[in-house]
Design a protein around this nucleic acid. Structure first.
Length: 554
RNA sequence: GGGCGAUUAGCUCAGAUGGAUAGAGCGUUGGCCUCCGAAGCCAAAGGCCCUGGGUUCGAGUCCCAGAUCGCCCA
């Protein structure tokens, strides 16, 4: 639609240039925007104002020249107006909007999808929490954002893979094993002081009990160093299984769980470091290996191997990202907590040193969540074991409300999550507003069916009967859905979908209160049923991208 | 001390590549169910878009400086 009008404008400009009235200037890119106020038509362009500033003439005069050259066939454009300082406003014929609904009807569950991604392989890595304890509310936001971004990218034609990176090779894993072992000692009666640095949560006790149940006291005899790796693996396996289970309850499923340990197999990390050293990206100083990240814009160089020979997380991350690209992903998206933002320049430097373009890695920072209950903050700390788990939140407020609440803000804006509010099934809770619209429409269609109406297809209704301003507004909004999805994908901003959804629901509720879909007039009723059918499709497709259910009754 | 982000209605927040009279929810006030689902709708009140400069036909949006808040780093 937009492009059609732009090309019409271009043609008009071409004619003017040919007459030489404007002298010899280049035509700038024509920008056509959708207007805010219907008084300004459907689309507007500022081209006359831009040209006039170059020509040093009156913008309205330039606009007049352009308008005079616009064709008058009236196939698409109903009216053109010059307004304000020199805008050219385009009014689109109603029939054009009617015709646009055909596409929605035809594409159905695929409406809104596009192929702009052209099948490029994209990896979205998210959550990636250490398997040292259950996921908590802070992880939940990242989980939803990653999941929905993946959905959106899929909808825009990318081939998407969801991945969870398991940091299972570091110090805190050792600490996990030690925590379980000490609880094991404790339960079996050995007197110990449980260190503060260890994980305090009850789940540690549960794991220790399970080991005792299955294997008894046999580990009491052996040395800590000998036993801890076993305890670590045992605990990590149980915790990871729990994480997977919690995520799946939350509607998040990964294609791959990638273990950090796999990177160290066959000396993998060391090999990559040697390669980078040969290429001059790494240098040594007093036994420490440094990555020259400053060469790629980082503020200082970073350690990759410590004096004791132990590689840093950064070293593993470089190896991991190399691995990602070697698996054929042309584009990699990492979802990080915003508190890691300081890590961004070195990661970018890392992949550039590996020879990949800086824009092959996109990092989405997700801001902190403050958990509230009835307006009061709920404390959280993994170590101390005082936290609200993802599982508890999902059990309490439900998957739909939880997901929707995390999607109501830009990802880079901090978010308050109030358990009481999210649980309330009232108008305080936006997810119900949208779901209610869906259920209401479904209910209308049920009633229509009872009255003997069959839901019609595009060719079976006369849409010119839909003359209410609300109906036209609704149609225009519905045809914007593909743009919204594409925009959300392009900007990696999932919240745009929730705002659009809210707008649609609002348009519908307003329309619903103004007139009745089912009336005495059969052909009008059929046209309106068709409009409701189309609206239902868009609501459902949008909700699906968010991973939120679209109930027919509630 | 350095870096990143934020600052828009009483509160929580949207404002896509700079556009015409600044948007929503909550809260407040007042209306709307004999009528397809009131988990809804309509209306009103409420704003030096943090401050000061700059860029230009035009700035909530872009640039610079400052203030305040949050986070990261030494």
């Amino acid at each position: 639609m937009k492009n059609r009008i732009i090309s019409i404008i271009e043609k008009a400009l071409g004619k003017i240039l040919a007459t030489g009235q404007m002298g010899d200037i280049a035509i700038p890119a024509i920008e056509l925007e959708t207007t805010r106020d219907p008084v300004h038509g459907d689309y507007a362009t500022n081209i006359a104002m831009i040209l006039s500033s170059r020509l040093k003439t009156n913008p309205r005069q330039v606009a007049k020249m352009i308008c005079d050259q616009l064709p008058e066939d009236g196939e698409v454009i109903a009216k053109v107006e010059i307004a304000g300082p020199g805008f050219i406003n385009f009014f689109i014929r109603d029939e054009v909007w009617h015709a646009a609904l055909e596409k929605v009807d035809r594409e159905g569950v695929h409406y809104g999808y596009s192929d702009t991604g052209k099948g490029q392989r994209v990896q979205v890595e998210f959550v990636s929490a250490n398997p040292t304890g259950p996921l908590h509310i802070g992880h939940a936001r990242g989980a939803v954002v990653g999941d929905v971004l993946a959905n959106i990218l899929q909808a825009t034609g990318y081939q998407v893979s969801r991945e969870y990176y398991i940091n299972d090779a570091g110090n805190q894993m050792f600490n996990l094993g030690r925590s379980v072992l000490y609880r094991y000692y404790e339960i079996l009666g050995r007197e110990i002081v449980f260190p503060e640095s260890c994980y305090q949560g009850d789940y540690i006790l549960d794991i220790a009990r399970e080991i005792i149940e299955k294997e008894g006291r046999i580990y009491l005899e052996r040395s800590e160093d000998e036993v801890i790796p076993y305890f670590t693996d045992y605990a990590a396996a149980i915790i990871l299984a729990g994480i997977k289970e919690d995520l799946s309850q939350f509607g998040v499923v990964f294609d791959l769980y990638f273990s950090e340990r796999a990177l160290y197999k066959d000396d993998g990390v060391a090999v990559i470091l040697r390669e980078l050293e040969q290429e001059g990206h790494i240098y040594r100083e007093e036994g420490t290996s440094w990555f020259r990240t400053t060469a790629f814009g980082d503020e200082k160089d970073r350690v990759v191997v410590r004096q004791n020979g132990e590689p840093t997380y950064f070293a593993a991350d470089i190896a991991y990202h190399k691995n990602k690209y070697e698996r054929g992903f042309s584009w990699v998206i990492d979802i990080w907590g915003a508190d890691h933002h300081g890590y961004l320049p070195r990661m970018s430097a890392g992949i550039q040193a590996l020879g990949y373009r800086a824009d092959a890695l996109k990092i989405v920072l997700v801001q902190l969540v403050s958990l509230l209950r009835g307006g009061k903050p709920v404390g959280m700390s993994t170590r101390s074991g005082e936290f609200v788990t993802l599982r508890e939140v999902v059990d309490e407020v439900g998957k739909d409300a939880a997901r929707y609440n995390f999607l109501m803000r830009r990802t880079d804006s901090p978010l308050d999550f109030d358990l009481e509010l999210a649980k309330e099934q009232t108008n305080e809770n936006p997810v119900y507003y949208v779901q209610y619209a869906h259920a209401r429409i479904a209910s209308i269609l049920r009633l229509a069916a009872d009255r003997g109406f069959v839901v019609p297809s595009y060719g079976e209704v006369n849409l010119s009967l839909l003359t209410m301003p609300e109906e036209l507004t609704l149609m225009k909004a519905l045809t914007r859905f593909p743009e919204i999805v594409a925009g959300a994908a392009n900007a990696l901003e999932p919240h745009r979908l929730t705002f659009f959804l809210n707008d649609l629901a609002s348009l519908f509720h307003s329309y619903y209160n103004k007139c009745k879909v089912i009336s005495e007039d059969d052909s009008l009723t059929r046209a309106r049923i068709f409009l409701m059918k189309i609206l239902l499709i868009v609501l459902k497709n949008n909700l699906k991208l968010l991973g939120v259910s679209a109930p027919d009754k509630m």
